[in-house]
Each structure stands twice: as C-alpha cells, then as structure tokens.
C-alpha cells in the first residue's frame, strides 16, 4: 500500500517534473556512473533534449525508457527492470531482510534457551570463601550490618556464611 502511495501518478505532475524523474533514471553512456541528469556531457544534453521531445509527443515514461533501451542497451537504465534475470536484483533485498530478521530471532530464541543452565553453573562454593571474604571486608573497611537480609533474594546471605 505504501509503495503505491509513494509513487506519483504520471498525470498528476507537470511534464517538467516527469522529465527530471526520467533523466534521473537514465545513465549517461559515456560517463562513469552518472545519470544524464547530473552529467554535462554533450550526449547527456542531447538525451535530455530527446526526453523532453518524447514527453511532448505524449509518450509514457515506460515508452521513453524502452526507446533508450532499444538504442543504447539495458545498461542505460539506472536501475534494472524487475523482469527476467533482473528480477533477481529486486528479490534479493527482500530475502536479505527476511533472512536477517529470521536469523536474529532464531539467535534470540537460542540465547534464551541456554539461559537456564548458565545461571545454575555460576554459583560458587561459598562456605570455602568465608575466610577470604573477611579479608576483603577488612581491606575495604566494611562493618557488616544486619539490614542485608531483607533484600537478599537467594537467602544465601553473605552474613549467614560468615557466621
């Protein structure tokens, strides 16, 4: 739906606007990677004049493009038409996006599953540590108070271990 909205219908705009649309879709045959709209080469100027002439004759955009394809070959179009082999150019991006998104979601799912195990493994043997914990507290000058029981989720309060 959005794509049809995005395109302007040919009859809604002036011939000049259509001309600029077209000149942006045709490559300059003698320049490197420039459209005839941007190029000042003689052939681009002639092609621009031809586009204008064809528009005034009442040709449609696709008729004009075909006219140039017939004379200069397919590479005169700045973007390949979505037919035949060139359809591949247009379909691939869709695959890339869909593929990317699905890989992302698979990865997310995968990462969630491994979660449960990861949390179980990491738990340390805390009773062995009490001696060192005291040393840490002396290093830091911490004098333990009893508030800590209120919040400790695992009930494996450090204070219990210490005592």
């Amino acid at each position: 739906m959005m794509i049809t909205f995005g395109c302007i219908r040919e009859e809604d705009i002036t011939l000049e606007q259509r001309m600029h649309q077209l000149t942006n879709q045709l490559m300059c045959p003698v320049c490197d990677a420039q459209t005839i709209d941007g190029s000042n080469a003689q052939i681009s100027q002639d092609m621009r004049a031809k586009v204008r002439e064809l528009l005034q004759e009442g040709k449609s955009n696709s008729e004009i493009k075909d006219y140039f394809v017939l004379r200069y070959g397919e590479d005169i179009l700045a973007a390949p038409k979505g037919i035949g082999f060139n359809l591949l150019a247009w379909i691939m991006p869709i695959f890339i996006v869909l593929g990317g998104i699905s890989i992302a979601f698979l990865a997310l799912k995968n990462m969630r599953r491994s979660n449960t195990q990861a949390t179980l493994i990491g738990t340390p043997k805390q009773h062995e540590l009490s001696k060192y914990l005291k040393q840490v507290d002396t290093d830091l000058g911490i004098h333990e108070d009893k508030n800590s029981e209120d919040y400790n989720p695992n009930n494996q309060s450090v204070d219990e271990i210490k005592s």
Partner: peptide
Amino acid sequence: LRMSAAKLLK
C-alpha cells in the same frame, strides 16, 4: 562484588 573479590583473593 565482595564475593568476586573473595574468590580472587582465594
């Protein structure tokens, strides 16, 4: 953090 430090000390 204290637990981590204690483990390192060990």
